[in-house]
Design a binder for these strands. Structure first.
Lengths: 253, 253
DNA sequence: TCGCGGATAAAGTCATACGATAGAAACAGG
DNA sequence: CCTGTTTCTATCGTATGACTTTATCCGCGA
């Protein structure tokens, strides 16, 4: 997949060696290359395999264990934790998913979560926003309008729009869901054909309507319009997901 | 505060040394003893202070950095990250909050999040539950009825009830919010006067009504009743939070 | 005043050694 | 033959010291 999204809130420093090891292990776990319960390469064996010291390796494992991806116990070894233990809402875990093939179920689940949370967030944002919050949201929207569709700055502006809405809720725990929403958006944009002008325009209108409701401080309206936005995005993404498998089948025929 | 809740899903092994260090640092950070931007004890100095090797200390820091609590950079040192970077929905981070004094704003925020998410989860659970899911939810409810109010098994059963509902949604990312809901419940139970028989009975009825809706596979009803449950819980918790500061003020008068 | 560059302090990495523990295997007793 | 116990050993956990890398700081020179 190799989609390299600008993971802003990511905690892993890719420059450091332990970070590279952690990344490597994480991707292997998430893609399923290392299945649940599998022993990770023995700490001693590993240094032969990728020539890294135990120190770096162990720090990588500690990093991953904090996210529930692995579980280390003396003697029994370090094993891949069951998926139920993974913190799927962790920004790093979400980002690592981009290096695996798109998992339709996962993307649907994320959209479902988003559909529950984001309209409520928009309601709060409309009710609680400061002028500075509004300015931030508007700036993001301008960024979406003034840049070419699906270009990098446009995507960033889209993410910033939604993130700014979360920020305006003034609810820190709720804001922790912003990365999940960002990931969902990035999945949908990634899957999208870059020439889908129609969808882009529709999305822009959806965003504008949400913005307007927030300007008017109309919470219920903002929530309703955000629902509409998410549903539109979901529908077009589902079409694209269906389309991804379609050509394969046709090609085989 | 010293409330020692059974943090089931916690990733930190308290038996190991690095785990104790991580715990210690985390609590200092969350309580604000180490304010944002504060340098953590220098890796070399630290070994004098708490007599632990750099290895254990560094692994603790790696664990915390994965949750966004700290940020380490060469030369500048390891610093406490700003609160916006913290992953407040991480099970460990939530658990560590129990060792700080109750923060009313934080508890309200958690309730707010819960109010957005849990009714929707109940709806999905009602629609998608298997018989096994239902059995699990019912078992938890029985656990609440058959044990004395506010006793440890009762609390566990309460948490299990809500967790089972999340499990029945069959949405793994959504399930990652279960720890946040559990934390909210534990806060409210912790604050509660243990002899508040009235609230306990009311809560039991709320739970029973949710359960019944799930039995009937009535999603809308389940959502509505879960909303009622959360709101009831929120209201009584807010009364208790107000009561906590009230006596102080009265005492000072 | 500004920019460059070296000194420096702190984290990052490595190698090695030893301790602790939980599985596994060997063994003894029924 | 089965079961419980002991011993063994592989593996993680911890400690230590040395070296490397990086970014900040500060002073020098243009």
């Amino acid at each position: 997949m190799q989609l390299h999204v600008h993971a802003r809130v990511t905690r892993l420093n890719p420059d450091r060696l332990f970070g590279q090891v952690a990344h490597r292990l994480a991707v292997a776990i998430i893609t399923g290359t290392s299945p649940t319960g599998a022993l990770l390469p023995n700490e001693d064996d590993l240094k032969d395999e990728i020539s890294v010291s135990r120190t770096a390796y162990r720090e990588a494992v500690k990093f991953l264990s904090g996210k529930g991806l692995v579980e280390a116990r003396p003697k029994s070894g370090t094993r891949v934790a069951p998926r139920e233990a993974w913190n799927l809402l962790d920004p790093d875990v979400l980002a690592w998913h981009f290096e695996a093939d798109p998992n339709e179920k996962f993307i649907r689940d994320l959209f479902e979560l988003r559909l529950f949370v984001e309209p409520s967030a928009a309601r709060l944002a409309a009710q609680r926003r400061s002028d500075a919050d509004l300015e931030r949201i508007e700036a993001a929207f301008r960024g979406m309008v003034e840049n070419p569709p699906y270009a990098e700055p446009t995507v960033s502006a889209d993410l910033a729009f939604h993130e700014a809405i979360f920020a305006a809720t003034r609810n820190p725990p709720l804001q922790c869901l912003a990365p999940a929403v960002s990931a969902t958006i990035q999945w949908s944009l990634f899957l999208k054909a870059p020439d889908d002008q129609f969808f882009f325009t529709a999305s822009l209108i959806d965003h504008e309507r949400v913005l307007e409701a927030i300007v008017r401080r109309d919470g219920d309206l903002a929530a309703a319009r955000m629902s509409g936005l998410v549903i539109d995005s979901l529908n077009s993404t589902l079409r694209l997901l269906a389309g991804r498998t379609q050509p394969e089948a046709a090609r085989n025929a």
